[in-house]
Amino acid sequence: MVKSIYAYLIVGLILLGIYILYTGSVSMMELILGAIVGFSVAYIFTDEWIKKPSKLNLRRLSILIAYALKYFTVIEAKAHWSVVKAILSPKPSLKPAIVRVPYRVSDEYAIVTIANSITNTPGTVVVDVSEDKKALFVHWLFAEVTEDEEARKHISAEFESWAKLIFEG
């Protein structure tokens, strides 16, 4: 079932880490039990999680961590502030619209990263994904533009460049 030993080891170690984090204590017995649990679950799910093991390396992981740090401090703060202003103002000026945002990545994790980043920032929610037309349909609270490319520049250009760095290229 497992195609690559390298990917298997990495998935097993991730699951072992989750086991130890949840259990909350580190000792010899916990490590043995966690290794048994983690590697046996990884045996089922490795091929589901990782399709191309050659892409796993530390550089991508560090970019992912940098992106997560920037996302959860700067980008989220800006987006929260704009929607909080809209909630608290007595007469909010809303321009809701569903716009089409094309994307130019092909890896499934990259698409999901872009979509979740868009949905997790208040103000934009992904309503549908069209896999054959390579576009996300986004409900946008402050729609300044409605054309595809312009909307892409406003909504997802930054996420897409990060996702390309992490999962492709």
Binding site: L94, K95, A97, I98, V126, V127, D128, H139, A143, T146
Partner: peptide, 20 residues
């Protein structure tokens, strides 16, 4: 949101454009 839109359970009433 997708299910609500596709099953016409709720319509996005105030909307400038609706590409979907």
């Amino acid at each position: 949101a997708k299910a609500a839109h596709k099953s016409r359970e709720v319509l996005p009433k105030p909307a400038i454009v609706d590409r979907l």
